[in-house]
């Protein structure tokens, strides 16, 4: 695992990845374990939800206001906010450490005195980020697919896969914001702050666009719009969603290379 910077980054992150994966699997298992009892009291609960003000309902449950169907439950409890937070927080953490972290630790000066081009280092760090976020995605997808199968809810593994893939791509895009900022500034905290700031702003924009007609047209500016917003399950995989998320990431990756190649490395 010390063959190159890609594998070394995976090795460095192995324990971190394991911690996050265990958390994800445990949360999914717990949530699906209580689903049968929720669905039994479905009528009462849905009645309560239907009486909530429309704006509040839309903000938390999406336009459908569906909470008690399997799809609605998983969307509300897992995919509307928790999954994006997990994916994005993990991606930002890894991306912040990737370049700016090495620079702050002082190991970058020695690393770049080796015959490794800056472009190659960026690509290897990005490849590691992709692999790690995908691994979280795989853990999430597998645990949810298995849990829904056990509980006997009619949500297909394919539809879960589509939602998880969109989250993975979303997290990679936000992680790339952190990577680019870290590469440009050499500061891990700057990368983390900008990545998190962009994520929160885009999340709020997308949520606002669902309940406010004036904000509605601007939803296309939010990456959350393309990852399915608050109701990712059942959205399916649309070419445009994938294209926007992937292209955003690639543009940020190109920016990272350019910014990193021009800079003075700090001592």
């Amino acid at each position: 695992m010390l063959h190159d910077s890609f594998l070394k980054t995976l090795r460095d992150q192995a324990r971190n990845l394991l911690t996050w994966s265990v958390g994800v699997v445990a949360y999914v298992a717990m949530l699906m374990a209580v689903y049968p009892s929720i669905s039994k009291s479905a009528g009462r609960l849905q009645g309560y939800i239907d009486n909530l003000p429309a704006a509040l309902r839309a903000a938390f449950l999406g336009p459908s206001g569906d909470f008690t169907s399997p799809t609605g439950y998983i969307n509300t409890e897992l995919l509307s906010w928790l999954a994006p937070i997990v994916f994005i927080a993990f991606a930002i953490g890894v991306a912040g450490r990737a370049l700016a972290g090495e620079e702050e630790d002082g190991t970058l000066s020695l690393l770049l005195a080796y015959p490794v081009s800056r472009r190659r280092l960026v690509l290897q760090k990005f490849a590691a980020l992709t692999a790690l976020v995908s691994a979280i995605g795989a853990a999430f997808w597998a645990s949810l697919a298995i849990a829904t199968a056990i509980v006997g809810t009619p949500v297909g593994a394919g539809s879960i896969f589509a939602a998880v893939l969109l989250f993975t791509l979303l997290a990679l895009a936000i992680g790339s914001v952190t990577l680019a900022t870290g590469a440009a500034t050499g500061s891990r905290s700057a990368g983390t702050a900008v990545g998190a700031g962009v994520a929160v702003a885009m999340y709020l924009l997308n949520t606002l666009a669902q309940i406010n007609a004036a904000a509605h047209p601007y939803r296309v500016l939010s990456l959350f719009y393309y990852s399915g917003g608050t109701t990712p399950l059942g959205r399916g995989l649309a070419g445009v969603d994938v294209t926007v998320l992937v292209c955003t990431t690639l543009a940020l990756l190109a920016a990272t290379v350019l910014l990193f190649e021009r800079r003075d490395v700090r001592v």
Binding site: L2, D4, D12, S109, A113, P115, V116, V267
Partner: peptide, 27 residues
Amino acid sequence: TGYLPGELSFYPRLSGHETLRYFANLR
């Protein structure tokens, strides 16, 4: 070229052997 930086930092979690193996692989 071989370089010894004035301000020297390595990866704290690697052993000496592992550090040298990593750098040898990069070379």
